[in-house]
Computed example of a mutant assay.
Amino acid sequence: MRRTPWVTYALIAANVLVFLATPGVAGSVAGESSLSQLCHLQAFLEHYAAVPRELIHHQMPRVVPTGGIGVGTHGPGCIVAPPGYDKSPELSVFTAMFVHGSWLHLLGNMLFLWIFGNNIEDRMGHVRFFLFYVVCGYAAGYGFALLNADSSDPLIGASGAIAGVLGAYLVLYPRARVWVLVPFLIFLPLRLPAWIVLGFWFVLQAVYSSGQGVSQAGTVAYAAHVIGFLAGMLLALPLRPGTTPPPEPRGLIFGRRARPGWSGW
């Protein structure tokens, strides 16, 4: 690696800081939250998450959670009122890229970004990599919204943008060998070409996006992963000529030998 991946580091740091500032999520490791925390979280998501109906139809809600608790005919619940802010649906796609719903959601995304982002940033350069990341995130967000135009469920997470990074890695470094844990009675570490690992990941996302093979496909925006991945592949194609394989690494990080500043999987 020739460049220090400052943008990758900055994106990881920004995601972690936003997560720590997200009400009712970071402090709940077990996934259990009080009603007050849930109400504050709903208000936060309504403000900063991307909502397909808002993106496609610009149908902004008349009332939103305020974060407060009230008592109605059905017992305690979250208070709703007209929003006290102006929300830009277009900007919400950007802010949603930094919002995560759980520690598992955050750590999974950041691990993929840490592993694959440094090589793509090295190939593209800092500014182009940041623009590439944002464009993939927007492609994933709007693509998912087009497929679910009437949905009012909030769309959050960096998965779409990071899927673009994976797609670019598949195009630029298909033969780079990475370590994976394959479940076969026990987890067996195998070093496989990136095209097998990422190709298998993409097929799984495509299958899951169709509702096959997973019981709760509605809770994860698998279609956004697919669209982000394809966007990353297309944007990386012009850079493929002249791209050399990453140097053989030294040292051991996440099961792959790496030089200082490298990470592997």
Rank of each mutant, 00 (worst) to 15 (best):
N109Q: 11
N109L: 04
N109F: 10
N109I: 07
M110A: 12
L111P: 04
L111S: 15
L113Y: 06
W114R: 10
W114V: 15
I115W: 03
F116M: 09
F116H: 09
F116K: 06
G117Q: 09
N118E: 14
N119Q: 11
N119P: 03
I120K: 03
R123V: 12
R123L: 05
M124N: 12
H126G: 10
V127P: 00
R128I: 11
R128A: 14
R128W: 14
R128M: 13
F129S: 01
F130S: 02
L131I: 15
F132H: 09
Y133G: 04
Y133E: 02
V134R: 00
V135M: 10
V135C: 02
V135G: 02
G137T: 08
A139S: 14
A140T: 03
G141I: 01
G141F: 02
G141K: 02
Y142C: 05
G143L: 09
A145P: 09
A145R: 02
A145C: 10
L147A: 15
D150C: 06
S151T: 12
P154K: 07
P154Q: 03
L155N: 11
I156T: 02
I156K: 01
I156F: 04
G157C: 05
A158D: 13
S159P: 03
S159G: 13
G160V: 07
A161Q: 10
